[in-house]
Computed example of a mutant assay.
Amino acid sequence: MAFNPIPAWNVIVFEKTNEAHMIASKHLPEYLFTAYMNNPFPLSNARYYHKQTDTQSIYYLSPEASVISADLLNMYGAMLLLDEPDVAGFDEHFI
């Protein structure tokens, strides 16, 4: 079943114990930027938040960033959030 993005917060979590996850985590910002640049609709305020913990690499995508590419969110197993996450302690990146 394909992931259909709606304007809402999404989270993608990569486990550091999984080498494939860590490789994917390093490429996510590049793929997100490429999808943004190829998006035919102008998007403002698209951003993501990133934090590394001892066991995980966590990305929160703003609603504006979440609608950039359904394929990208589906490929990385993004999870839809019902509420805005607490991003205190995360690095903010504008796309």
Rank of each mutant, 00 (worst) to 15 (best):
residue 2 A to Y: 07
residue 3 F to R: 07
residue 3 F to S: 03
residue 5 P to S: 02
residue 7 P to V: 02
residue 8 A to M: 03
residue 8 A to E: 07
residue 8 A to C: 03
residue 8 A to W: 03
residue 8 A to I: 02
residue 9 W to Y: 15
residue 10 N to D: 09
residue 10 N to S: 14
residue 12 I to Q: 01
residue 12 I to V: 04
residue 12 I to E: 00
residue 13 V to A: 06
residue 13 V to K: 08
residue 14 F to V: 08
residue 15 E to P: 00
residue 15 E to H: 09
residue 16 K to F: 00
residue 17 T to D: 11
residue 19 E to L: 12
residue 19 E to D: 14
residue 19 E to N: 13
residue 20 A to T: 02
residue 21 H to F: 05
residue 21 H to A: 01
residue 21 H to K: 02
residue 22 M to D: 12
residue 24 A to N: 09
residue 24 A to G: 01
residue 26 K to P: 03
residue 31 Y to A: 11
residue 32 L to C: 02
residue 34 T to R: 15
residue 34 T to C: 09
residue 37 M to C: 05
residue 37 M to I: 05
residue 38 N to C: 03
residue 38 N to K: 04
residue 38 N to R: 04
residue 39 N to C: 03
residue 39 N to T: 06
residue 39 N to P: 00
residue 39 N to G: 01
residue 41 F to V: 14
residue 43 L to V: 12
residue 43 L to N: 08
residue 44 S to K: 13
residue 44 S to P: 00
residue 44 S to C: 05
residue 45 N to K: 09
residue 46 A to G: 05
residue 46 A to T: 07
residue 50 H to R: 10
residue 51 K to L: 07
residue 52 Q to F: 10
residue 52 Q to H: 11
residue 53 T to V: 06
residue 54 D to L: 10
residue 55 T to P: 04
residue 56 Q to T: 05
residue 57 S to E: 05
residue 57 S to C: 02
residue 58 I to L: 09
residue 59 Y to I: 11
residue 59 Y to P: 13
residue 60 Y to C: 00
residue 60 Y to Q: 00
residue 60 Y to S: 00
residue 60 Y to W: 04
residue 61 L to G: 02
residue 61 L to H: 14
residue 61 L to D: 07
residue 63 P to M: 02
residue 64 E to A: 14
residue 64 E to Y: 15
residue 65 A to V: 11
residue 66 S to T: 05
residue 66 S to M: 04
residue 66 S to R: 11
residue 67 V to Y: 04
residue 67 V to I: 15
residue 67 V to C: 10
residue 67 V to W: 01
residue 68 I to N: 12
residue 69 S to Q: 08
residue 69 S to M: 06
residue 70 A to W: 02
residue 72 L to W: 01
residue 72 L to I: 06
residue 73 L to M: 02
residue 73 L to F: 04
residue 73 L to I: 01
residue 75 M to V: 04
residue 76 Y to C: 00
residue 77 G to E: 06
residue 77 G to F: 13
residue 79 M to N: 07
residue 79 M to E: 11
residue 79 M to P: 07
residue 80 L to C: 03
residue 81 L to T: 03
residue 81 L to S: 04
residue 81 L to N: 03
residue 81 L to H: 09
residue 81 L to G: 08
residue 81 L to C: 08
residue 83 D to K: 15
residue 84 E to P: 05
residue 85 P to E: 14
residue 86 D to H: 13
residue 87 V to L: 07
residue 87 V to E: 04
residue 88 A to N: 08
residue 88 A to E: 10
residue 90 F to L: 04
residue 91 D to S: 11
residue 91 D to E: 13
residue 92 E to C: 13
residue 93 H to F: 09
residue 94 F to Y: 10
residue 94 F to E: 11
residue 94 F to A: 10
residue 95 I to H: 08
residue 95 I to N: 06
